[in-house]
């Protein structure tokens, strides 16, 4: 039976994931994206593009119902979505309806015959599991921003507009309060992370000024969050978010395994710590032994000049 991958991005395209799908099954990729991202979907390798044209969708369960119906017509054998908070809610609902096995937050995908081999970390990154689906439809969510987008222009992509009529609103949107810091940590290219060594809220304010200047995300260790230096959404590690930026700058962080669990996948790691024996240095590509504030002040000064 011929295989097809459906890449579901109803809330926003993940170009890297689409590129990955096009690499796994060239020429057999279907994408479901907001109408405004039609051109981008064609650029990154989709052959059939369903463009969704409708207002804000609040109820992911209702969208899952709609997609389950559509999938019966499309017959896609593999369904992938970025592991964003909303898609990690929608995909399990869809998987149940399709009687499909679902793997969460994969960090690698590979075809073995007609099987999709899904690799994901478990238990705070200390185990890597390879998983296969036993169902006809194989489904996975994939860590966002993990794969680099690779252009494969497809000017002949078939465009199919989709509308959605979600009648019953069991859920109503009331308000949205954006975080002051714009970029989600999971998608930041550079992250400045502070730990107990930073010592205070004022110290973190300095880090956040630097982060802003660098266009970086601000993160923290759990101890720093517990101490009230930074909000919980900044927490990286086993009980926080997992990140994989191109550069992770760990400032005054000792390098506990639970913290490493959330950032050891970073492309480059730089540690700034006054204790030359701090474990974090072992996991860093480059270390600066010294007082964090001296280093950060100097960096800020250079940024300003």
């Amino acid at each position: 039976m011929s295989q097809e991958i459906l890449v579901l991005c109803p809330f926003g395209l993940d170009a890297g994931l689409l590129s990955k799908a096009a690499e796994l099954l060239p020429g057999r990729v279907r994408a479901f994206v907001p109408a405004r991202e039609q051109a981008e979907a064609a650029l990154y390798g989709a052959n059939i593009i369903h463009t969704l044209n409708c207002g804000e969708i609040v109820d992911e369960a209702a969208l899952a119902d709609l997609l389950a119906e559509k999938l019966k017509l499309w017959g896609s054998s593999i369904v992938l979505a970025p592991a964003t908070i909303r898609m990690r809610n929608l995909m399990p609902m869809l998987a149940w309806k399709l009687d499909a096995g679902l793997t969460a937050d994969c960090t690698a995908l590979e075809m073995a015959g007609s099987d999709l081999v899904q690799t994901r970390p478990a238990f705070g990154n200390s185990l890597m599991a390879s998983i296969r689906s036993l169902s006809r439809i194989q489904m996975a969510t994939v860590r966002p921003g993990l794969f680099r987008p690779a252009a494969r222009p497809n000017p002949k992509a078939e465009i199919i507009p989709e509308s959605c009529h979600i009648r019953e609103q069991r859920l109503r949107h009331v308000a949205f309060q954006p975080f002051s810091q714009g970029k989600p940590l999971s998608q930041a290219g550079i992250i400045v992370a502070g730990g107990m060594g930073v010592g205070s809220k004022e110290g973190f304010r300095k880090l956040s000024v630097l982060a802003e200047k660098l266009g970086a995300g601000l993160a923290a260790s759990r101890s720093a969050v517990d101490a009230g230096f930074a909000p919980y959404r900044c927490q990286v590690g086993m009980t926080g978010v997992t990140v994989c930026p191109r550069l992770y700058i760990a400032v005054g962080i000792s390098g506990a395994v639970q913290h490493l669990a959330g950032m050891s996948g970073s492309e480059k790691i730089v540690a700034i710590n006054s204790d030359p024996k701090a474990p974090i240095f072992g996991y860093a590509d480059y270390g600066i032994v010294g007082d964090w504030e001296t280093v950060i002040d100097q960096l800020l000064k250079e940024e300003l000049s």
């Binding site: 009687d99 499909a100 096995g101 679902l102 793997t103 081999v117 970390p121 990154n125 200390s126 185990l127 890597m128 599991a129 390879s130 998983i131 296969r132 689906s133 036993l134 169902s135 395994v257 490493l260 669990a261 050891s264 790691i269 030359p276 240095f281 072992g282 996991y283 860093a284 590509d285 480059y286 270390g287 600066i288 032994v289």
Partner: peptide, 20 residues
């Protein structure tokens, strides 16, 4: 409906970069 077919323990790899 999912089956784990392989598992390896993966402790974050030591990078041991230079210290300045």
């Amino acid at each position: 409906l999912t089956k784990v077919t392989a598992m390896e323990s993966k402790f974050p790899g030591l990078r041991n970069g230079p210290k300045e």
